[in-house]
Design a binder for these strands. Structure first.
Lengths: 108, 108
DNA sequence: AACAGGTACCTTGCTATACAGTGTACCTTG
DNA sequence: CAAGGTACACTGTATAGCAAGGTACCTGTT
């Protein structure tokens, strides 16, 4: 068992919440989201594209294409109203879950 | 997408940490662990038994059998020294990960 | 005695997902 | 014009939670 084997698992499911949080601030595109989240929570490109597809299918985001001066065109993602309420709901779930775990851990 | 679809994913990987936390307090058996964690983090029996097997294979726990006055014999799990240090390490990882997410979420 | 229900163990099959790896194509800089 | 960063996307693999099902023990009720 490598050192990060468990952390990999730990991340699952929180990633959508992180993406929602970023998009709640401002619209963004997949490559930028992946770059931003790579540092803090270790999201890679192979993860973000399927996730964005899923979120679009679920109606949480819509997209627009925009030219870029520094490479190929970017597909910007924006939260829909459904996306905003999903963000609020998942944030509550996150709090409730982490509070339950923190309580088990005892000290904090 | 059901309401809990994401929460299911969110749980992954934190469950081992929860089990380690419980066993750090006192030895226990799978059925009791599952019952305790069912309320707070929603762990079911189908999850706990494979997990305990994995943790034993990883050397994090050892077991002893004990008679029970109210049913079949129980298999008690106890943390090994490796289990205790894994607990400490995973607790640090948990803190660092949740701190990163909480920072993204902004308010707290 | 028969049965229901709680305790306690465990396995199989299904589904979802993260991620590495790979590929395409655009643009700028040396 | 080659190299490297930007930006999109897909495939294959491994992992893991969980519902459902199965065995078996013990107690209390009918």
């Amino acid at each position: 068992m490598t050192d990060s084997a468990n952390q990999i698992q730990l991340k699952k499911g929180a990633l959508e919440l992180c993406v929602l949080a970023l998009l709640a601030r401002r619209e963004s595109y997949a490559y930028e989201i992946a770059s931003t989240l790579a540092a803090g929570v270790g999201m890679s490109e192979g993860t973000i594209y399927p996730l964005m597809r899923r979120m679009q299918d679920d109606g949480l985001v819509d997209t627009r294409l925009a030219e870029s001066s520094s490479g190929p065109p970017r597909k910007y993602y924006r939260l829909t109203p459904a996306g905003r309420s999903a963000f609020a709901a998942q944030k509550r779930e996150w709090r409730s879950f982490t509070d339950a775990v923190d309580q088990l851990l005892g000290d904090r």
